[in-house]
Amino acid sequence: MLALAVELARYPFDGGAAYSAERRSKTCGSTVALSFEAGLANIGLKVTACAVGQASAAIFARHCEGKSKDDIVQSADAITAWLDHGEPLPDWPDLHLIAAARDYPARHGAILLPWKAALDALSSGEEGR
């Protein structure tokens, strides 16, 4: 998990990107700010979170490019079902690397932060057009 956290340096946040949003977990106080261009390209992250939240953000960043809003919604719903109801591990590459965190409900909010922030950014970008 710590190796994933270090990987975040590959994704510098860009305050001038076409899309950006910040999300805060109510359960643990972790925050994720992300920026990106159309098609979830050139993602940038600013993460203040535990190792689980940092790892989740890195996993999101590794595999989000080219995803649609519907893809992100479906993934977020599947991750929520996995975390809350024991559904099978969602089909998002590398998510298995943080699977052990499912046993810690206080970390569930941090796991979902990148998906929620991306949806916020995509929604605000649509409203602004």
Rank of each mutant, 00 (worst) to 15 (best):
24 R>T: 10
65 E>S: 11
114 P>A: 04
105 P>E: 15
67 K>I: 08
117 A>R: 09
22 E>S: 15
3 A>Q: 04
118 A>S: 15
128 G>Y: 13
53 G>C: 13
41 A>W: 00
94 D>I: 05
67 K>E: 07
89 L>F: 07
85 H>W: 10
21 A>P: 01
22 E>C: 08
89 L>W: 12
74 Q>N: 08
59 I>V: 14
20 S>F: 12
79 I>Y: 02
94 D>F: 00
22 E>T: 14
107 R>V: 07
111 I>M: 07
105 P>Q: 11
101 A>V: 04
19 Y>V: 10
69 K>M: 07
56 S>W: 05
59 I>S: 07
39 G>M: 09
56 S>N: 09
101 A>L: 02
7 E>C: 06
39 G>Q: 13
2 L>Q: 09
30 S>F: 03
105 P>W: 14
9 A>H: 14
17 A>Y: 05
26 K>G: 14
57 A>N: 11
60 F>D: 06
123 S>D: 15
74 Q>K: 14
26 K>I: 05
69 K>P: 05
25 S>N: 05
48 T>S: 11
127 E>S: 14
65 E>Y: 02
96 H>I: 03
37 E>N: 10
100 A>Y: 12
127 E>Q: 10
29 G>S: 04
15 G>I: 04
15 G>S: 12
79 I>C: 01
7 E>N: 13
96 H>F: 01
22 E>R: 15
40 L>M: 05
4 L>N: 12
19 Y>D: 05
108 H>T: 01
83 L>V: 10
8 L>M: 15
42 N>D: 15
69 K>I: 04
105 P>G: 15
